[in-house]
Each structure stands twice: as structure tokens, then as C-alpha cells.
Design a protein around this nucleic acid. Sequence first.
DNA 1: CATCTAATGGTAGCTACTATCACTTCATAT
DNA 2: ATATGAAGTGATAGTAGCTACCATTAGATG
Lengths: 219, 219
Amino acid sequence: MKSLAEDHQQSTVGDPGRPTVGLRERKKARTRASIRQHAMRLFREQGYGETTVEKIAEAAEVSPSTFFRYFPTKEDVVISDDYDPLLIAAFRAQPPEVSVVEALRRSVRAVFSGLDPENIEREAYRHQLMETVPELRAAMYTEYRRSIDLLANLVAERVGLDPESPELRAFAGALVGVMLAVAYTSEGMVLDEGGFGRIDRALAFLEAGLPLPGSRPSA
Amino acid sequence: MKSLAEDHQQSTVGDPGRPTVGLRERKKARTRASIRQHAMRLFREQGYGETTVEKIAEAAEVSPSTFFRYFPTKEDVVISDDYDPLLIAAFRAQPPEVSVVEALRRSVRAVFSGLDPENIEREAYRHQLMETVPELRAAMYTEYRRSIDLLANLVAERVGLDPESPELRAFAGALVGVMLAVAYTSEGMVLDEGGFGRIDRALAFLEAGLPLPGSRPSA
DNA sequence: CATCTAATGGTAGCTACTATCACTTCATAT
DNA sequence: ATATGAAGTGATAGTAGCTACCATTAGATG
């Protein structure tokens, strides 16, 4: 997400006609992509821990210094993605008649079912890595916190409540928590139909008020 | 929690009479406590990032090697706690008439309201650190995953369901997610009455099926 | 008391990451 | 077209977390 913002920023006040996508910008984007690509390949080939930043830099034909200019940490190569803006847009586009949870479900589906197989493959591997490597799992926590905040604000906007209210925080927390608990089985991957099915089922259960035997909700 | 297990294990098959709490074990416990204590003090005085392991080791009068023998990572000094067994016991002790959420609420209250002011203070600072320092926030992720698993198993045991079922996972995920979202305001700390109040409110909201306007649960 | 085991300290080394600086490459204005 | 400025790069050196190894010491056991 930071990546996206960076890549799209334009160095000077453009010419609306020819939007100054300057050679510089393009080269930067290419370098970033190259580093990420080589990194992921090496991770796949020899494992995350075994792949040093130096090796990645060498493979991408840049210096280690440059690597760290593009990615503040080694983890960031795997962690960072560009889906937030898409998900936000998709959520905002949902018709007001559907429930919040349903709107969310549709947004996720809309974004991720629009991916070509290659990207799906890449995403799947990315998530597998994140589940598998402890350092990356840890780094995801920040990601989830951010998701809760994002979701609270988005839902607040939709239903017209204060995003700081305990109710909204609880709602967002519960939702993200459910995803967290269900989205990954032991071995990563959310994007196949099985994954969607599991998520749908869990969300429905949540929307029904988590009716466990012996839990007897408010009734 | 690992700590507790380690500290309480007895090296040899005891003598029930004199339980071989041997001088060795006691010294180990003291060393561990000392390291942790000095570390926390230094963190408070000069900040987490500014306090090197070397400094901690020096303050506790051990070698850096020894530090890492007691705590696998620097983060672990802050992250690890000993409450899991207490919470488990408290939860198991709850009468079967109360709802799962209520049982949980009572367990948490029981454990944390039994703390003396000094421990409360320490806990509060611990959590503040964990919220504040990015590395520690990240490390907590693993903690939350573990909590979900633990909770799923505990509840499964109580209501007699498969802990791997999506319903139970969702339930545990939602609960932990709610805690995650609500327990900390911007600056840590869960253990005062305000914290309990917020948690209670959010849990009640969850138990009621998260009735947001425009959310219209299953009805 | 002798012996065996566990805890310790010290050394050396790897890797992620930072800071700094000189150099080169691209962008812009005259 | 060229000079001037800015931005991207690489090299060097250094810090800190962490590991592996080995020799030494301190405590437990028979």
C-alpha cells in the first residue's frame, strides 16, 4: 500500500496532457518489481531464512544499499501489497441495502476473483510464506491492526457511527478476528473456493450471533 | 507461560516429602527474574530500542550468552507472561450455567483482580510497551494466534464440539479479535476498571450478535 | 570425596540494518 | 545545448541481535 502511493506519485507538477511518467519513475518501478521478483524466486528456491539480502541484491543486480532503499526491511518484500485501495473502493461501491458483513464479503470476492491465475498463484505463495515463516507471521500483526482501524472507519462511514465507539471497534475486531482464525488452515491460502467457502460459513455464523450451545446470546 | 512451565519443573523425580526445589532451580529462577527486572527498568529509563542486550546483561551481572539462554529473543523479556495456566484453571472452574462469554469474562476478572498493585503497575507498563514498540506489537501476533487456539480448545471442551470446526474457530477468533480491538486504547493498559468496562461492553455487544444499524443479523 | 551434569562466560562470526559520502544519471532552465 | 540541481546508486564502515562452540565453574549425586 505504501508502495502503491510511492509508485504513483509524480515528481513535478505535470503537464496534464503528457503526465510526466518520466523515465526515472518507470525505472524505479522496474527496479522495485525486479527486486521483489528475484526475492520471491529465491525464497521459493532456497527458503526465506537462507536467502540473504545480499543474495537478493546480487540477483537483482543492485547493491544492498539500494535494496533497503526500496524495502525498509527484508520482511517488507513479502508483506507489502497493493490491495487496500481496491478493497476500499469495492466496499464503498456496495449498495446500501446489503448488510455490512455481506458488503464486505462481496468486496473481498470482487477484488480477489478479478485476479488472473498468475497473480492468484503469487498471492497464494505469498500467504503461505507469511503463515510459514515466524518473522513474517509476526509482521502480519501490524497488518491486522491496520485492518481493524481501516474496517472500523469504513463501516463507520457506511452506518454513520463514530469509528472510535466500542461497538464499532468490537465489530471490526470480531470480523478481523474471524478472518484471522478461519482464513488460513495450517498451510496458508485463502483464494480458492474452499477458502471462500470457509470464510462465508464463518461470517454467516458471526452474523447469526455466534449461536454456540451454552452460549445463549442476549435472548 | 513457557517460563512458568520451566520454572516449576523439577529436575528429578521428587521425594514427595522434600520436593527437591534444589538450590540450582532457585538460582535459575532468581537469575531469570533479575534479568527481566533489570531489563524492564532499563527499558523504562532509556527506552526499549536504546537498551542493548549487552547493557541488560551487564546490569543483571550475567554474560550476554546467559541472557539468550534465559530469553530466546530480546522481545521475549517483555512478551512472555505466566497467566495462561491461571486463566485456564479459572475458566474450567466456571459453573456450566453461565454462557461461554460470561464464563470468560469472569475468568479474566478473577485472575487480574487478584493482583496486587505492584503487579498491576508492572502489567500496565508491559502492555504499554507492547503497544508502543513496533517490534513488540509484531511479536504479539503469535501470542494472539496462540490465544485463539487455546480458546477454541477450551470452549470446545466446555460445549463439546470439535475445536477445529469453523464455528468454534470463528467464535474464538471473534472473541480474541474483539479483545484485540478494544482492550487497548491508544496507550495500552487493560487492567483498570475503565478497561474492564470497555471490555464488558464490547463483549456484551458481541454476544448480542453485533447489532449494527444496517447489519441486520440473520433475522 | 569423586564424579557427572548443568550453568556460565568468552570468543568468533553471521546477518539485518543504518549512516555517510562520493559518484553518476536524469530533469530542468536558460 | 549545456549548466545546474536533484535524485538514485554503490561502497565502506559500523551497530546490534543472535548462534555456535568450547573451556571453566558450580552444584547435584552416589
